[in-house]
Structure formats: structure tokens, C-alpha cells
Design a protein around this nucleic acid. Sequence first.
DNA 1: GCCTGTGAAGCTATTCACAGCT
DNA 2: AGCTGTGAATAGCTTCACAGGC
Lengths: 213, 213
Amino acid sequence: MMTPERTVGRLSLYRRLLVAMRNRGTRHVFSHELASAAGVTAAQVRRDMMTVGCSGSPARGYDVPELIEHIGLFLDADEPEAVALVGVGNIGRAMMAYFEGRRPKLKMVAAFDQDGSKTNRVVHGCRCYPIEDMASVVDDRGIRVAMVAVPAEAAQDVADVLVRAGVRGLLNFAPVAIRVPEHVYVEDIDVTTSLEKVAFFARQKRAHKVSVS
Amino acid sequence: MMTPERTVGRLSLYRRLLVAMRNRGTRHVFSHELASAAGVTAAQVRRDMMTVGCSGSPARGYDVPELIEHIGLFLDADEPEAVALVGVGNIGRAMMAYFEGRRPKLKMVAAFDQDGSKTNRVVHGCRCYPIEDMASVVDDRGIRVAMVAVPAEAAQDVADVLVRAGVRGLLNFAPVAIRVPEHVYVEDIDVTTSLEKVAFFARQKRAHKVSVS
DNA sequence: GCCTGTGAAGCTATTCACAGCT
DNA sequence: AGCTGTGAATAGCTTCACAGGC
């Protein structure tokens, strides 16, 4: 039974919303409340809860702390996951700053860059190594997850080295499709495509509005 | 006839791949070649080409410059689209640097931040204004597309102001679901969710591998 | 009355498969 | 022989709708 990609994404979002609710003192939540916060339907939330094996009561809805724990058991590894970053440019540094202390189960433990002026330093609590050390450090530390934030031309080579060193999941910021063996998972974040989509649909909406009114 | 979101995303990717091909001197391309570069099936590429109203020949495949032009006619506005950025933190600055001169049809023309030390300066060719000026600048310049790169707590308020000022498309980096009227399009880039997905499926793949062998 | 849990229905997106062309 | 264009089939995801419970 393979959990759908979309479901995993929503669970991650639910968890953050639930943690925020808990911090505000909320103890129980109905599917339609969580749905509204997450921007999905109530039926969708209930389906997703089935995936993590959580049930609620008709009277009170779902128990917030219990939900948070179950989603954690489902999503997280037992041990915190070590993450590598390749490419300490603008995006790479932004990611370091962003993840510093945010998700304790995902710890950026090593960064790599070609540029000697960036290496052998500690940035945002993460040591930067020369790119040549990538294979050995990833292998030594048993790193399974890596972020690729290098220019498009370099992305495939970097991915190849990472995969050979044992990485099983890649978060790719380079605006190209990376080829990997079947046993490796790749998620792309392509800001150019995203912005072009936004511009396209923003225009559509305008056109539609005119034609309707 | 509303073009599917996924199709628009793929067209954006195809275009970049095609431009790279053209720069290498490639004149013609078969659906399976473009498919392989984009990481999709050949049938998918042919379907997408129907959307932009482009046809190829069985002998030579598709004409690369023609494809680039047709995708441009389909995706782009006639005039370059002005884009606003809200939040000049790590991610905001990375986006400024990234888009500087990259897509001439999408021009970052104004940035906004709360922090006085960041405003009234020009960063990466983009003027930074105090957040209070957001509504008036967006309205005056007729900006229809904006990137939201502020902390989660501020995202909804920022979005509300932008929408009231005329924005029709948002690229949201804040890790929350933003509520907008029906005539506004929102695309989310949620790096926490993306990284959690990668970690989850990296683990699955490992488990799967063991159980198969 | 309003909730959850879930089989069944409905939708959307992708892939198949083959006629037609060169 | 190998390609494109596309109706038909399939697969995957979401919503409906209602039984069961408080």
C-alpha cells in the first residue's frame, strides 16, 4: 500500500496547522474546521485521517494532540533525518536560514559548494564542505536526503554523485528534470514555472471576469 | 476551455528545455526526445502540443523555434508582466537575485518590507518600499502578480491588501493556506512540506527495496 | 442535528493504441 | 519503419451520500 504523494503533502500541512491550534489552546477539531484552515474539503480531511489510522468522535471531532502524534508517527522517521545541501548560493542560504531549528526531525548537517570562499565555515549551524568531499561525507554520515540548489547545468552531475553515495530522496531547485534510478524519489521546486503559472492564471481570471460581467 | 494547471506547468518546462536545445543548435525534436528531457511520456508531450495548437511532421518531429514561439504566444502576456515581492528576507532576496534578468516577460518592479533598514533602496534592480506603500504602489502601477515571502502570521493580511489593490495571482511561500476570493489564483511553494515529502518517500523507497530483495 | 467513517460515484489527468502520413 | 494526432481506456484522486453514533 503506497500512500499517494498528495496525501503526504496534506498531512504535512495539517500537522503544522494542528500545532498552531494546539499552541492556541485548541483541544479538539472537526474535519470541516481543519479542512477550512487547510483549504480542502471536509471529506478529504476524513479520508486523510484514515490513512494515518486516526479516528474522531462525532461529538467532539478529532483530538488535536493525538492527531499531531499520529501524523508524526506516520510521517517522521524514528531518528532525526540528516539532510545535505548542495549549492550555497542565494537559495541554498535561504534554505539554511529557513530550516534552522524549524523542524527538529529534519536537520541540515552538511552543505557543499564549489566556491572555496564559502567552504570550511559554519553557516546557520551547518558546516560547509568543498564539493569534492560530497561523496565521502554523505556516505560517512549515512545521509539519505539532499537538497540540490546548484545551477541547472550542474544539477544532473550533483544528483548522480549523491545517488551513488546513498541518497534516496532529492529536493531539486534547479529548473531541469533530473534523471535518477527508480529507487530514488525526486521532488522539484521550480520557481520559474510556478511564477509563470501564476502569471498565466492571473491573466485567465481577468479575461474570465470580463467575459462574465 | 480552461487549460489544466499541470499542462501549464509542463509547457513552462518544455519552453526552457527547447530554448536550451535551440542554443545548442537543435532545429527539430521528436516528442519522445522532449519527453525524455522533461521526464514525461511522449504521449503527454503530444497532448500538450495540441493545447498550444502546434503540430509536427512524422518525418522531422516538431520545429524547435516554432514550438518556442507558440508556447510563448500561449503562456505569455503581450506586455511584460510587472511582479511585486512582499517580504525582503532570505527567501525574498533569493527570489530577487534569481529572477534578475532571467525571464524578461516577468519583471520584479517593486519590493515591500516592514523593516525600515531594507526600504528605500534598490536591491537586484528592484526598488524596496515600506510596507505601508504597498496598496498604493500596486494600484498605481497596475501590478497583477505578487510573490508573498513573509512569515506565516503575516501572510493572510498581506494577501488581503494585495487582492484589494488589484492583484489577481499570488505565489505564496508562507507555510499556510491563504484564503482569497474566487477570482484570484494562488500557487503555493511550501519547502517544509516538500522536504517532509522527500524524507518520507526516501524512507519508503528504502523499505520497499529491502522487502523486494 | 450534526458529526464521523466509508463504499460508490464522479472527475481529471495520463496512457494506450492505432489510423494516417511521409 | 517510425513518427504524429487523437478517440478510447485506464488510473488516480476527490467528492458524494448515507449508515451509524453521540
